[in-house]
């Protein structure tokens, strides 16, 4: 017996229809209207053993602005009342919803929670956190893991015509284990940079994945044009930008031993914080070379559209820093010492 794909679709649709009818009967309640009032889990019946839940917080209700589209509806196979279509729990109003049942002073609790970024008012069931509090934590940790162990989208690199080189690190595991190897260019990288890069520019821009691929994916397209255009407008010569995989900040020294720029700008992904996985840092140094440390560098950190410095704005800061470094022929503590009198 053979079945065509078309037959299979029909069979699957029929089975789903049957299951749905059965489920609705079991639930013993009228199926919600197809126009979009499907319930979110907060309103589902509580397990028999659990205490009756308090009224779900308003933030857990559907906003009602737009009718939900279920996967099934979107695929056009069938329409119906089943489907779960949740609002984003990481949006501020849901993220900061208070989950304490029957608090002594709800307004006071809200005021207290607003004074800190710590996760307060998360509630409990027995001694454990509420389900929504637990899942939000897992979501926030999840994006950090995806960012650290992810790779930068090649399209982002192609868009800016960045060629890719690597450090002495073999893979992501070694990158995490051996920070020293991430601060050194591979022999191939040295050869590629020697061959492809303009030497002795005023400013060399380098992009590195660091500890967050998402930082590059989400911010590069905004920050890089601002920096390039800002520097070009000031008639500052730019080197040939490129991308370094498995990069650490100390790499700036190795790179400049080849390109001989006055200023190196390294845009590199930061170690993700919980819930903010795409923060980018811009490290800048005047004539970096072996032995230069963070004390010789300037830094703009937390460049992200998620609660940090906006990448467009940060790009403008980077341009200003680069101009000042060129003017004073210094960076880091030395630059601060030289410019202290200006302030």
């Amino acid at each position: 017996m053979t079945t065509t794909p078309h037959d299979l679709d029909a069979i699957i649709a029929a089975v789903i229809e049957e299951l749905r009818a059965g489920a609705a009967a079991t639930n013993g309640r009228e199926a919600p209207a197809a126009t979009g009032s499907t319930s979110v889990p907060a309103a589902a019946p509580a397990p028999a053993a659990a205490p009756a839940p308090a009224a779900a917080p308003a933030t857990q209700q559907r906003s009602g602005a737009a009718p939900p589209v279920t996967h099934a509806e979107a695929s056009g196979r069938f329409t119906g009342e089943f489907g779960i279509d949740l609002p984003d729990p990481t949006e501020p109003e849901r993220r900061h919803a208070l989950r304490v049942e029957d608090p002594y002073d709800a307004e006071g609790l809200a005021n207290m929670a607003s004074t800190t970024t710590a996760r307060l008012g998360v509630g409990r069931s027995g001694p454990r956190p509420r389900t929504s509090s637990l899942l939000l934590f897992q979501a926030d940790h999840g994006v950090t893991q995806d960012a650290i162990h992810g790779t930068v989208d090649p399209e982002v690199l192609e868009r800016f015509d960045l060629f890719t080189v690597t450090t002495r690190v073999a893979d992501r595991e070694e990158y995490l284990l051996r920070p020293d190897l991430g601060r050194r260019l591979s022999d191939q990288a040295k050869a590629d940079i020697t061959e492809r890069c303009t030497k002795s520019p005023q400013v060399q821009i380098v992009v590195g994945d660091g500890l967050s691929a998402a930082a590059i994916d989400n911010n590069l397209a905004k920050i890089l044009p601002v920096i390039e255009q800002g520097l070009s407008a000031a008639k500052i010569s730019l080197g040939t930008p490129f991308f370094v995989e498995n990069a650490r900040v100390g790499l700036m020294n190795d790179i400049n031993d080849i390109v001989g720029a006055e200023v190196i700008i390294l845009l590199i992904g930061e170690r993700p914080g919980l819930g903010i996985a795409d923060a980018l840092s811009a490290y800048m140094g005047y004539r970096p070379t072996a032995g230069k440390t963070d004390a010789d560098r300037d830094l703009i950190c937390m460049i992200t559209e998620h609660g940090g410095t906006n990448p467009l704005e940060a790009g403008a800061y980077v341009v200003e820093f680069a101009k000042r470094m060129l003017q004073h022929q210094a960076s880091g503590q030395e630059l601060r010492r030289l410019t202290a009198d200006d302030a």
Binding site: V100, D102, P103, Y104, D105, G108, L109, M112, R124
Partner: peptide
């Protein structure tokens, strides 16, 4: 039942 509520300490 009162535990887990920071606002308890506003009393």
């Amino acid at each position: 039942a009162k535990a887990g509520d920071a606002s308890f300490f506003l009393q």
